[in-house]
């Protein structure tokens, strides 16, 4: 298989397989998780404005008071890499095009130099977060194979994408193919690893907000 065939495969059959497993996995896992259901709360609710599942989905994106000081690396590194990822994934023109092709939705892109910068910052943040995981007793204690594996799965698309754009290490065609392949691996494993938090985080926050909101606590 030459590099062009490799690229065409990852853009064609490979993508098809990856997206299919992703869609299949996401639906299966969402059903599996949320079909367990929850009993209705019979306690009389206390109504406080701002205390609800929806509010919590957004409110939890802001660090609670004092916590940034407690664990600056987790917060700054984590926020940087999540926001960076979002920018790179959703505001880079070629990615928007893919999303447009798959969903029909599109929006304006950011200049690629900026995306480039964000990618580097994101990768740096990820490396810092990784170092933190190795150094911090709690994180090291909690970490399993899955944590190292998913870090790699997330890092590879950034690295390969950046290398491809910068024309480093391997010819662009191969690098682009590796980039797409790494994204496909990410898609394939996402529903079955802790990466699935990308989906359940909303459900979790909503439940937290809902359960506590019932008590009048805006969490």
């Amino acid at each position: 298989m030459n590099d062009m065939q490799f690229l065409t495969w990852v853009r064609g059959t490979g993508l098809d397989i990856a997206v299919s497993i992703f869609v299949l996995g996401v639906l299966w896992r969402l059903f599996e998780i949320y079909s367990l259901g929850r009993k209705a709360d019979l306690a009389a609710p206390r109504d406080t404005p701002g205390a609800s599942g929806w509010h919590t989905i957004f409110r939890r994106s802001i660090p609670p008071q004092g916590m940034v000081k407690k664990s600056p690396v987790s917060y700054i590194g984590g926020y940087t890499f999540h926001i960076g990822l979002a920018i790179v994934v959703f505001l880079f023109a070629p990615h928007i095009l893919l999303i447009k092709n798959l969903t029909g939705l599109s929006w304006p892109a950011l200049p690629s130099q900026f995306i480039d910068l964000v990618t580097v910052v994101t990768m740096a943040a990820m490396v810092v977060v990784l170092a933190d995981r190795i150094n911090k007793p709690v994180k090291r204690y909690l970490s399993t194979f899955g944590d190292w594996f998913t870090w790699t799965l997330t890092f590879l698309p950034l690295l390969t994408g950046w290398l491809a754009v910068q024309h480093l290490l391997l010819p662009y065609t191969v690098m682009l193919a590796l980039h797409i392949l790494s994204v496909e691996l990410l898609l394939i494993f996402l529903p079955f690893t802790k990466l699935f938090h990308a989906f359940t985080v909303f459900g979790s926050r909503w439940y937290l907000g809902k359960i506590n909101g019932h008590k009048g606590v805006a969490v």
């Binding site: 065409t8 064609g12 993508l15 098809d16 997206v19 497993i21 299949l24 599996e32």
Partner: peptide, 23 residues
């Protein structure tokens, strides 16, 4: 575009059905 699928994704819909059914 290079960032678009080379072929239309054929299995996506089937996967969605299978995933939903499995779910």
């Amino acid at each position: 575009a290079l960032s678009m699928p080379a072929d239309p994704l054929k299995m996506g819909a089937a996967a969605a059905v299978v995933g939903a059914a499995a779910g």
